[in-house]
């Protein structure tokens, strides 16, 4: 199209069409990142009204703080355990939703619910269900085991709860993505692989994944990135406690930046988070390219 237009006119139309979207997005994403990196070299605290160049101090101070190291560690545990569970459960649900049964349509619809409910609401609902005195789940655990548990003041159980709530919320999305992959595969191929004795994981790796479009694969990866960066569940469920047991990097950035106004430290921690995201994005890029060329 537009092949009969002059080059200049073509470029101009392109600029008019694409320009506004690109300008809006880049000015509110790339500029802030540059600014964040800049601020990370300063002690910039609104409360104390200081703005002073400190070199790499913010970065080293963060790593010298054992609490932050723990927070980074838990972030990695949180995301990897979440994703593994989501892939396993998502695959199971995708297979379930790909099977023919009565009421499949409604179950497919219900599957979307956890994903469309505001995350902050889910966080509060689960917090209420885990309430040590009046909670629903607390009551069930008591009836089954006879123990009165206080899940959210035990650091291990609080972490488990947070991960499970995150899995509850995000697995449906994984399931949709994986289901779309499954649907693009002929049944025969699957059955054949089964007869050849391919395990569930091998089938996933060698049939489902390659057959899924690049869109689906990258979408799955973006979803992982969004989970790292989301603070809503934590804000709703545990507010980072007990102690800092369920604090992830993103939540700490929120505390540093918006509750303590230590914008320098918040920026430095943001840079660490960006590095982690960059690593995951590189994987996404690799897969995106690979699948784009292969399909």
């Amino acid at each position: 199209m537009f092949s009969n237009y002059s080059k200049l006119k073509k470029y101009l139309i392109f600029a008019i069409l694409v320009g506004p979207a690109v300008l809006l997005r880049f000015s509110t994403s790339f500029y802030p990142i540059v600014r964040t990196i800049y601020l990370s070299f300063f002690k910039h605290n609104l409360m104390e009204q200081v703005h002073r160049y400190v070199g790499l101090n913010n970065f080293t101070a963060l790593l010298n703080d054992q609490t932050i190291v723990d927070v980074i560690g838990f972030t990695l545990v949180f995301i990897s355990v979440s994703v593994i569970l989501q892939l396993i459960l998502g695959m199971a649900i995708a297979n379930l939703l790909n099977t023919e049964f009565k009421g499949r349509k409604i179950v497919r619809t219900l599957n979307l619910l956890p994903w469309v409910i505001p995350v902050i609401v889910s966080g509060y609902v689960f917090r209420w269900m885990l309430n040590a005195d009046y909670g629903l789940i607390t009551d069930w655990i008591f009836r089954l085991s006879g123990k009165e548990v206080q899940l959210l003041i035990n650091s291990f159980y609080a972490r488990v709860s947070l991960i499970l709530v995150n899995v509850w919320r995000n697995t449906p999305f994984m399931a949709i993505v994986l289901l779309a992959g499954l649907q693009s595969i002929p049944d025969e191929l699957y059955e054949a692989a089964k007869i050849d004795g391919a395990s569930w994981f091998q089938r996933f790796l060698h049939i489902t994944l390659p057959a899924s479009s690049s869109t689906i694969v990258t979408l799955g990866l973006f979803n992982i990135i969004w989970q790292i960066a989301n603070i809503d569940i934590i804000l709703g469920l545990t507010q980072g406690g007990p102690g800092s047991a369920t604090t992830v990097i993103a939540f700490r950035i929120y505390q540093l930046g918006m509750q303590w106004f230590s914008w320098g430290s918040a920026s430095a921690l943001s840079v660490y988070l960006l590095l982690i995201v960059a690593v995951i994005s590189l994987i996404a890029l690799y897969l995106y390219r690979r699948f784009e060329f292969s399909s």
């Binding site: 409360m47 609490t67 003041i153 035990n154 650091s155 406690g241 007990p242 102690g243 800092s244 047991a245 505390q255 509750q259 303590w260 230590s262």
Partner: peptide, 16 residues
């Protein structure tokens, strides 16, 4: 505010 947060977070971590 931030000093209190430090005390609270560490105290809470110890008491749990």
């Amino acid at each position: 505010r931030q000093a209190s947060s430090i005390v609270e977070e560490l105290a809470s971590a110890y008491l749990t």
